[in-house]
Computed example of a mutant assay.
Amino acid sequence: MRQDQTTIQVSTSGQGCFEITRDVGAFVAASGIETGLLTLFIQHTSASLTIQENADPDVQADLTDALERLAPEDTRLYRHTCEGPDDMPAHVKAALTDVSLTIPVTGGRPALGTWQGIYVLEHRRMGHTRRVVCHLTGK
């Protein structure tokens, strides 16, 4: 059994979905591991991870809009407002989505479906540099 690990840095430009499928796939390919299990973990509380359709960009826009409806920017709804009106809603959105993903690796590639892509969901209005730890175990 072998292991490999790296951290991918993702520059976001504000709220939205930022695809990292290629970066993750490049890490898996470079590892030389053919069969295994990949864990992705985002080191932030106001951003998250998801696997979602990557064929139609309207899916990502609709997902961002839906999360906004679930956790709107309205300081009357939250106690934690000291970091701006978008901060607490970002924490709620991160809690509703995933901070880690587990993906099988088959044939030296993440075993994603035809239309699946891996995304960082940025929940803050301003852009940030987000860190995603990638840990791969296999043979």
Rank of each mutant, 00 (worst) to 15 (best):
G25A: 12
T137D: 00
G138A: 12
T102D: 09
T64K: 08
R69G: 07
S46I: 00
L77E: 06
G16H: 10
H80A: 05
V120T: 08
T64E: 04
T81M: 00
T137G: 01
E73M: 12
T75H: 00
L101F: 02
L67F: 13
I20S: 10
T35A: 13
L37N: 14
F27Y: 13
D23Y: 00
V92P: 03
K93L: 10
Y78H: 07
L121Y: 00
V132A: 07
A111H: 13
E73V: 01
L112H: 08
M1R: 10
G16P: 08
I51V: 15
V24R: 13
G84L: 00
D87F: 07
G107S: 10
V99E: 04
T21V: 01
L121R: 11
G14C: 10
G16K: 13
G14R: 11
G32D: 08
T7W: 03
Q9H: 14
G107I: 09
I51P: 05
P110F: 02
L49F: 05
H44P: 05
L136Q: 03
L96R: 06
A111E: 10
G127S: 08
T6L: 00
M88T: 15
H80Y: 11
A71W: 03
K139C: 03
P110T: 08
P72V: 05
S100N: 15
H128T: 06
V99K: 15
T114G: 11
G113P: 02
V133Y: 04
L77W: 05
T50Q: 08
V24L: 04
D4G: 10
A55L: 08
F18H: 15
E83P: 01
H80M: 06
M126W: 07
G113S: 02
I33N: 03
V24W: 01
L77N: 12
C17F: 15
R124P: 00
T39A: 12
I51M: 13
R130K: 07
S31V: 09
P104A: 11
L63I: 14
R2E: 13
E34R: 15
K93G: 07
G138F: 10
M88S: 11
G36K: 13
G117V: 02
T45Q: 09
L121I: 12
V92F: 14
L38K: 14
D23E: 15
G117Q: 07
H91I: 06
R109S: 08
L112P: 09
L49E: 03
G108Q: 11
L112V: 04
T97Y: 02
D62L: 06
T21Q: 03
K139E: 10
T102W: 01
L136I: 05
R130E: 02
V10H: 14
D87L: 02
R130V: 01
A29H: 12
G36Q: 10
D74E: 13
I8D: 13
G16F: 06
A29Q: 15
Q43R: 13
V28H: 09
P72G: 06
W115Q: 14
K93S: 07
T137Q: 12
Q43V: 05
V120P: 03
K93C: 10
I20C: 11
D56L: 09
G25P: 05
R130T: 01
L67N: 04
P72D: 02
T7M: 07
I8T: 09
S11H: 14
I51L: 05
G108C: 12
L112D: 09
T12K: 14
Q3S: 14
Q3P: 00
D62G: 10
T45K: 14
T97N: 12
T102V: 13
E73P: 01
G36M: 11
D4E: 14
T21P: 00
R130L: 04
